[in-house]
Design a binder for these strands. Structure first.
Length: 292
DNA sequence: TACACCGTGTGCACTATTTG
DNA sequence: CAAATAGTGCACACGGTGTA
């Protein structure tokens, strides 16, 4: 479906005489002094999501401008500056948008950007990034889409978003039946409350959100559901937060939704009440409807 | 104090790229 | 081809900061 051009070798900001070598810690500290608070927020946002399109960054951080185009303009200028400082980079050029027209660039933290954030966090100037695969990138972009849907719904007062955690912050580790350490890895964790007439609802809903791209077989997905059940049986989440979140699968289309729904119903091991299955288009409606 | 410089915000005209 | 979208170049305005 998506023809993707290879990596566009952009000699961004490198002068003819400069050699490829890492930026030293002094140079990083020097760069850090030149960064605005928003530059840092931008770097942290990209680091948290691993990959974001220009459009994502624009909507997360540059939404409060006079016009949308002006926000976009500022966003691209900030990104260009950070790219010239080798703090962010474009791993691939995405070809073809959703409809006609060019698609947004995809951004990731470059190795110096990674080291700069680690330096700030007191972890020393360490960190290196590898060339990611396209499937991997698309999964993270889909997570960003889902996160952004929640954030924009909160901005427009449709819901109250008291917690939203991206992986690995939302991961839950526990000890399995055999005594081995298990890690449950949702893509997002969120606590929401729909707003009506500007007032948040009386009850909050907690969600483990899984963004599915139909790249895994249904039996594999069912196994993943079993991990949620196993974690629920430990009682850890209920002890810490009072409730066990619903598991919301966001799947690409109705066909996959039906397939997954049937697979969960047929499985003897799963409690169907724990799951909600939706498509990106219906995602917000499901969140607003809540656990009811 | 006056001035230069820089980052940022904004608008406009333009190019590049893709879809139908 | 036209339409749609992302991105660029340029010009101007504004406020903060450093310096003579």
């Amino acid at each position: 479906m998506n023809r993707s051009e290879g990596v566009s070798a952009e000699g961004s900001g490198m002068t003819g005489t400069s050699r490829r070598r890492g930026l030293g810690a002094e140079r990083l500290l020097d760069l850090q002094r030149q960064l605005s608070a928003r530059d840092l927020r931008l770097l942290e946002l990209v680091a948290a999501h691993r990959f974001l399109t220009t459009r994502h960054i624009e909507q997360f951080l540059f939404h409060d401008h006079a016009t949308q185009t002006s926000g976009a303009r500022s966003c691209r200028r900030s990104l260009a500056r950070l790219e010239s400082w080798q703090l962010v980079e474009r791993p691939i050029r995405r070809v073809g948008g959703m409809q006609a027209g060019s698609a947004s660039s995809i951004w990731m933290l470059a190795s110096p950007g990674h080291r700069l954030l680690n330096l700030r966090a007191g972890n020393g100037a360490v960190g290196r990034v590898r060339e990611p695969g396209e499937r991997f990138i698309r999964h993270y972009l889909a997570i960003a889409d889902t996160h952004l849907t929640l954030v924009t719904a909160e901005r427009s007062s449709q819901l109250e978003l008291s917690t939203v955690e991206i992986e690995p912050l939302c991961w839950r580790s526990h000890v399995g039946l055999g005594g081995q350490r298990e890690v449950l890895k949702p893509d997002l964790f969120a606590v929401t409350a729909p707003r009506t007439d500007g007032l948040p609802a009386e009850f909050e809903d907690s969600w483990f959100i899984e963004v599915d791209r139909a790249t895994e077989s249904l039996p594999t997905v069912v196994k993943q559901c079993e991990q949620y059940e196993a974690y629920r049986r430990t009682g850890i989440e209920q002890d810490q937060r009072g409730v066990f979140p619903l598991v919301l699968w966001v799947v690409p289309d109705e066909r996959r939704a039906t397939g997954l729904r049937t697979a969960i119903q047929r499985s003897k091991k799963l409690d169907t009440d724990l799951y909600r299955i939706t498509t990106p288009e219906q995602f917000l409606a499901v969140i607003l409807r809540g656990a009811a």
